[in-house]
Nucleic acid binder design. Structure first.
Length: 325
DNA sequence: CATGGTCAAGTGGCA
DNA sequence: TGCCACTTGACCATG
């Protein structure tokens, strides 16, 4: 079992202002709290906006993002964290209709390709599991053919990065999305999803996973099962989302149903977060994520890798209270 | 150099 | 109708 976090390391990134503003307490361990300089900021989200897009700048940002990713992985290793979600912003605008590019045509392509191999090698050597979770704009089930086309391209771009890291083509390095666009018509959305899934590159198909939604009219774990049966796509169980969309299953039932969709030999991934509203003393839970974990999180005896989706990132990993039984 | 307005993209749900 | 939520705050122009 590994416990990981998503995209950003606050300690290295010095990004605790949000936590400070909303809770009044600083993390105490980021570079700002320790008196460091902004220059030393380590993060992998360097991006740009379309208006100022410049391929040379983007290429340099990618180099810096990959350098910092390796720094973060080393920090993780030092702190016994061997599971991390990579930011889709590491390669800004890569799949954009007008501004998109191939990695090979970037000015720093050689350096970037080398760094990707080095990151992959480091992850394999130290058994770090790296995953992607492309943004909510990826809707494979959309009725809009342009949206589907862009989604296919973006997912393939993500998969290509894992290929360049030298990873096997399995959901060990998953690319996770939601089914999307089916609140009024589950059957139609599932059909379109299955149809469009066939259009993805094979390596992308082999890495794709589906996550249960956080809205009652959307897709519970049970609602995703027909898609799993048609495509073999494993299901990622999100504990927090399940509260808002149970599909009539208990937490344990939904967890174990999702686990049953994973291939032998690959540890299933689950997502764990808690309600921000409850954390701040509210009455009813809402989908927005908490800063930290308060738990306990129950595993019911199952072995999974846990992606903690809390705003305080790696700091929240250390607050996770896991109940094995 | 701090601040606030703005930023590629889809969809659903709430005030 | 507008805004927030989700992957994930960062960029950039202004003072």
């Amino acid at each position: 079992m590994q416990v990981g976090y998503a995209c950003i390391n606050q300690t290295l990134g010095g990004n605790c202002d949000r936590t400070f503003k909303e809770t009044g307490s600083r993390c105490g361990s980021c570079f700002k709290c320790l008196g460091g300089k902004p220059k030393s900021k380590i993060y992998t989200n360097r991006t740009c906006i379309a208006r100022t897009f410049d391929i040379n700048t983007v290429s340099q940002k990618i180099v810096a993002n990959l350098d910092d990713l390796l720094t973060i992985l080393r920090w993780n290793e030092d702190h016994d964290i061997r599971f991390m979600r990579l930011s889709s912003e590491m390669f800004p605008f890569m799949s954009h209709d007008r501004l998109g590019y191939e990695i090979e045509e970037l000015p720093d392509a050689d350096q970037i390709l080398l760094k990707l191999r080095q990151i992959g090698q480091y992850a394999r050597d130290n058994e770090h599991r790296l995953t992607f979770h492309p943004g909510p704009f990826n809707v494979l089930s959309s009725e809009n053919s342009d949206t589907v086309r862009r989604t296919i391209h973006e997912l393939n771009c993500h998969s290509r990065i894992f290929d360049l890291m030298g990873f096997e083509q399995t959901p060990y390095n998953k690319i996770n999305i939601h089914l999307g666009s089916g609140s009024q018509d589950h059957d139609g959305a599932r059909s379109r999803f299955i149809e469009n899934f066939a259009l993805l590159d094979t390596n992308t198909q082999l890495r794709l996973t589906l996550e249960n939604d956080d809205k009652g009219n959307m897709f519970s774990v049970a609602d995703l099962i027909p898609v799993h049966e048609a495509t073999g796509i494993p299901i990622v169980f999100d504990y927090h989302h399940h509260q808002f969309c149970t599909g009539g299953l208990t937490e344990q039932e939904a967890l174990e149903l999702a686990i049953s969709t994973w291939p032998d030999g690959i540890t299933p991934v689950v997502h764990y977060s808690e309600s921000r509203t409850l954390e701040q003393g509210g009455e009813a839970p809402t989908p927005a994520h908490s800063d930290l974990c308060h738990g306990p999180m129950r595993l019911y005896g199952n072995d999974v890798d846990i992606m903690v989706e809390a705003k305080a990132k790696e700091l929240a990993v250390f607050t996770l209270d896991i109940m094995m039984g």
